[in-house]
């Protein structure tokens, strides 16, 4: 059961994605509601799979590629539901679910046997470091989706043509504000993730920082978001520029997470 759950969860997210694609062309409250129902079901099962894993493992289930991808996707959904509750923008699903399906796809494609964690790594830093990192990165993931929505709506307004999404997308100002809020949420979290990671490395290996590819890329990502916030606060880079930067920032997150894992040698790779 626990092992087939991720397939069901992946399936439900993908169905919700397909319905949101249909909803571009056929607009009705029934379709909108069904997207949310599918997402609630998927999220409930998803939470179940993570919780059961937690009890088997005895610690937060982020110890391999399957678990971490799944946890990443799960925290993206938490942020999605918060935004849906706050702003009632169903179309957000269309821009978040491709990321969700990608994350869940990687999860089900990875081996998901339960291996006991090496005692070297099993420390209380694990919980803090991984939670901060994944929730922070989820905020960045959603902000990238919001960034894409901003660019589409801004283009309609500038070109003075109402496209397919015009009525469904909220105002550019609100998208810009959500984008900024998500980055101000994500940035302190990944800052904490890097700090707790360094402390954890010190307790496990004796050094804080080893310029491992994962560490280097994390730092790079951190610098990008630091730059986004700096430009916004000092240089008033809001709107279109901020939206583009948030998308670039998330590409860096994805590379730090997957690229380093699959393309580079790192002691930090999820197996």
């Amino acid at each position: 059961m626990i092992f087939s759950l991720p397939y069901i969860v992946f399936g439900l997210y993908t169905i919700a994605l397909l319905i949101s694609i249909v909803s571009i062309y056929k607009d009705s409250s029934k379709i909108k509601n069904s997207i949310i129902y599918f997402l609630i079901c998927a999220f409930a099962l998803h939470s179940g799979s993570i919780i059961s894993r937690f009890f088997i493992l005895g610690t937060i289930p982020i110890t391999n590629m399957y678990e971490s991808s799944s946890f990443f996707a799960w925290s993206v959904m938490v942020i999605f539901f918060y935004l849906y509750y706050r702003y009632r923008v169903t179309i957000l699903a269309l821009f978040i679910l491709p990321i969700m399906s990608l994350l869940m796809f990687v999860a089900i494609m990875s081996p998901n046997e339960i291996h006991p964690l090496s005692p070297l790594l099993n420390s209380f830093w694990l919980v803090f470091h991984t939670t901060f990192a994944f929730v922070g990165n989820s905020a960045f993931a959603v902000s990238a989706g919001i960034g894409v929505m901003y660019l589409i709506q801004e283009r309609y307004l500038k070109r003075k043509r109402k496209g397919d999404f015009f009525n469904k997308l909220p105002s550019v100002q609100i998208l810009d504000e959500i984008n900024y809020k998500l980055i101000t949420l994500g940035f302190p979290l990944i800052t904490l993730a890097i700090i707790t990671g360094a402390l954890w490395a010190e307790s496990a290996f004796g050094t804080y920082w080893r310029w491992d590819p994962k560490e280097t890329w994390s730092l790079f990502t951190w610098l990008i978001y630091a730059l986004i916030l700096h430009l916004r606060i000092i240089g008033n880079w809001r709107g279109k520029k901020a939206a583009i930067l948030s998308i670039l920032g998330f590409l860096s997150v994805l590379f730090t997470y997957y690229g380093v894992n699959f393309l580079m040698e790192s002691y930090h790779s999820f197996k």
Binding site: Q153, Y156, L157, F166, N167, L169, P170, S171, V172, Q173, I174, E177
Partner: peptide, 20 residues
């Protein structure tokens, strides 16, 4: 009845997609 069919209503419609 959803879409504006006068210039001043169209202005309001666009304003709603610009501001919160």
């Amino acid at each position: 009845a959803e879409n504006a069919v006068s210039i001043s209503f169209a202005a309001v419609e666009m304003a709603k997609k610009i501001f919160i």
